[in-house]
Structure formats: C-alpha cells, structure tokens
C-alpha cells in the first residue's frame, strides 16, 4: 500500500521538507539577474532573483505559484545554485534537481524542469546585462 502511494502520487520526505520549509523565499531588490518561467494558466509560475559577484551566485531568492513539487524544486534549485559559478549553475538539469530531492513522481518532472529553467533564465539575464554594460 505505502509503496503504491509513494510511486503513484506521493512525494519523498525531502520534497515535503522543502515544501513545508522552503529555503530562500522572496524577492531581491535590484537583482543582477531575474528569470520568470511558466504560466498561471498551466498552474506553475516561478520567479528567480540572483545577486552575482565575480561570476559567482552570492544570493538567490524565488517566488513560486504552483503545486508542492513546484515549490520544493524551486527551493532546492536555489540551495544548489547558491555559491556556484554561473557557468556551473547553468549546467544544473531538471534531473539533477529531482535527484537532489530523492526523486519526483513522473508526472511532476515538468516542475523540476521549470525550476532549473527559472535559474537558467536568471543567469542568462545576468549575462545579457553584463554584456550590455561593457
């Protein structure tokens, strides 16, 4: 019974921890990079804010509208990317996020996709701004 619940609809303990106590929630004023992905019509919308120093992510915050795994993956991706070089952070994939959370139900994999996408969007925004400044 429990196994079925876990694989059919259930979340790992880690997902639930990040859902109940998400890390790095909020917005950053004047961020060095900002990314927004998803759409409320589809049920998921994420905003990612980063502060960058010497191409390293020093501060990262998010806001998410969506289901439990959308919130958990947002929280996890911020934890993973914090302190990382932006080029390394760009390499974080949806599977990396899901793996760090001890897995996601198959139909929820798109949520982790969104979290990584939001991070990538924020980094690309940072890079575009940087290039623009030069």
């Amino acid at each position: 019974m429990e196994v079925i619940e876990l694989t059919e609809t259930g979340y790992s303990k880690k997902v639930l921890e990040h859902f109940m106590n998400p890390k790095n929630v909020g917005a950053i004023e004047n961020p060095d990079g900002y990314g927004k992905v998803g759409n409320p019509v589809c049920g998921d919308l994420m905003e990612m804010f980063i502060k960058v120093k010497d191409d390293t992510i020093t501060e990262i915050k998010f806001k998410t509208f969506g289901c439990g795994s959308a919130i958990a993956t947002s929280s996890m991706v911020t934890e993973m990317a914090k302190g990382m070089h932006v080029d390394d952070a760009l390499k974080i994939t949806r599977n990396d996020v899901a793996d760090e959370l001890d897995g996601l139900p198959p139909k929820k994999m798109h949520c982790s996709n969104l979290a990584a996408d939001a991070l990538h969007a924020a980094i690309k925004d940072y890079k575009a701004k940087k290039t623009g400044k030069k």
């Binding site: 979340y11 639930l16 859902f19 109940m20 049920g43 998921d44 509208f65 969506g66 289901c67 439990g68």
Partner: peptide
C-alpha cells in the same frame, strides 16, 4: 494552487 493547499493542510 490547490495541491499546495491540500499538502499544507495535511502536513
């Protein structure tokens, strides 16, 4: 979103 409401009330 509703699933978050459900999870939050449950947990």
């Amino acid at each position: 979103e509703g699933e978050s409401i459900l999870l939050n009330l449950d947990m």
